[in-house]
C-alpha cells in the first residue's frame, strides 16, 4: 500500500513502451466512448450497453479458448449481442427484460468457456476486470481501426441519430429512417464496448461509456458541449486511472471507476447548486413567458 502515490516509480513506469501503448489504447477508447456516450444516455441505453459488454466477454472467452485474438472475439460477441438486443427487444416494454435474459445467458456461457480454458488465470480475470497493460501493437492497430470506423459512421449519421433519439415522432415524420438507425447504432455500441473489454474489462465498461456522458448531461444541454465534456471526462478517468494504478500495480478498473464516479458527483453537485439559484430567480420570469 505504501506504493500509492510513489511519483518516482510512476514516472519510471511511464517510460516503458508497453505502458505507453496502454495509454494510447486508453486514449483512443476515451475519445470513442466520450463521443458515443451522450447518445447512449439520451437513448436510455445504459443497460443495453451492460448487456452488450457481457456478451463481449462471452466472445472474448470463446476467442481465448480457440486461441484467436481476444479482441476479435470481444468484437464479434458484442456486435452479435447488440444486433440480438436490437432485433428481440424492438418494443419498449420488452427491451429491459430481453437484455436481462440475453445478458445472464451470455455470462453463464462465458463462465463455462473460461472453465474449459487451461491457460493463465490472469487472462481470465483480465477479461472481467481489465488488463490494459497487455495491449500490444497488433491490438493497437485493431483499436485504431475500430475507433476510426465508429467515429466515421457516427459523423455520417450523427444528426439524424440525434434527431431520432431526442424527438422520435417528429424525426420519423420528417423522414429520418429510425428503423435503420437503431440497429446501426447498436453495432457501433458493440464495437465500442469491445474496445472497453480490453482496458477496463467487461464489468466496468459502463464507467467509460455511460458515466462521463451522464456527468456531462447534468451540466449542459448543448449537444456539442456535452460531447466535448464527455470526451474530456472519459479521458481524465481512463488515463488518470491508469497512471494512478501504475505504482501500486493495482487493477486499473478501481481507479477508472472511482475517477469517473467522482466527476459524476461533482457534476451533479454543480447542477443542483445551479438549480437552487435559478429556481429562485428564473421561474417567475419563465412562467408568464408561455402565455
Amino acid at each position: 500500500m505504501d506504493k500509492f502515490g510513489d511519483v518516482g516509480l510512476t514516472l519510471d513506469l511511464l517510460a516503458l513502451p508497453f505502458v505507453q501503448s496502454a495509454l494510447l489504447a486508453a486514449a483512443i477508447l476515451g475519445v470513442v466512448a466520450g463521443v458515443i456516450g451522450p447518445l447512449i444516455v439520451r437513448r436510455q441505453m445504459a443497460f443495453a450497453v451492460h448487456g452488450t459488454a457481457e456478451l463481449g466477454f462471452t466472445g472474448a472467452a470463446a476467442a481465448l479458448l480457440l486461441g484467436v485474438g481476444v479482441e476479435y472475439g470481444a468484437v464479434a460477441g458484442a456486435v452479435i449481442a447488440a444486433l440480438a438486443l436490437g432485433l428481440l427487444g424492438t418494443k419498449a416494454d420488452e427491451r429491459d427484460s430481453v437484455i436481462g435474459v440475453v445478458l445472464s445467458f451470455g455470462l453463464g456461457l462465458g463462465v463455462l468457456l473460461l472453465w474449459f480454458y487451461e491457460g493463465r488465470a490472469s487472462s481470465k480475470l483480465g477479461l472481467l476486470f481489465g488488463q490494459v497493460i497487455t495491449v500490444d501493437s497488433t491490438n493497437l492497430a485493431v483499436y485504431a481501426c475500430s475507433a476510426v470506423l465508429v467515429l466515421g459512421v457516427l459523423a455520417v449519421i450523427y444528426r439524424p441519430l440525434l434527431f431520432a433519439s431526442v424527438d422520435p415522432v417528429v424525426a420519423a415524420a420528417r423522414g429520418v429512417p429510425v428503423r435503420v438507425l437503431t440497429p446501426l447504432f447498436a453495432v457501433l455500441i458493440g464495437i465500442t464496448t469491445a474496445l472497453g473489454v480490453q482496458t477496463v474489462g467487461v464489468l466496468l465498461v459502463l464507467a467509460l461509456l455511460v458515466t462521463p456522458a451522464a456527468a456531462a448531461c447534468r451540466v449542459t444541454s448543448s449537444p456539442l458541449l456535452a460531447t466535448v465534456l464527455s470526451v474530456v471526462f472519459a479521458e481524465v478517468a481512463v488515463l488518470g486511472g491508469i497512471v494512478l494504478s501504475l505504482a501500486p500495480g493495482a487493477p486499473i478498473s478501481a481507479f477508472v471507476t472511482t475517477l469517473s464516479f467522482v466527476i459524476y458527483l461533482v457534476c451533479r453537485a454543480i447542477a443542483a447548486a445551479r438549480g437552487r439559484v435559478s429556481g429562485r430567480v428564473a421561474q417567475p420570469v419563465s412562467v408568464p413567458a408561455g402565455r
Binding site: 459523423a155 444528426r159 439524424p160 424527438d167 417528429v170 424525426a171 423522414g175
Partner: peptide, 11 residues
C-alpha cells in the same frame, strides 16, 4: 433539428 435533422453528415 427541424431545419436539417434529417440530413446525413455533420453539416
Amino acid at each position: 433539428l427541424g431545419l436539417d435533422g434529417q440530413r446525413w453528415g455533420l453539416g
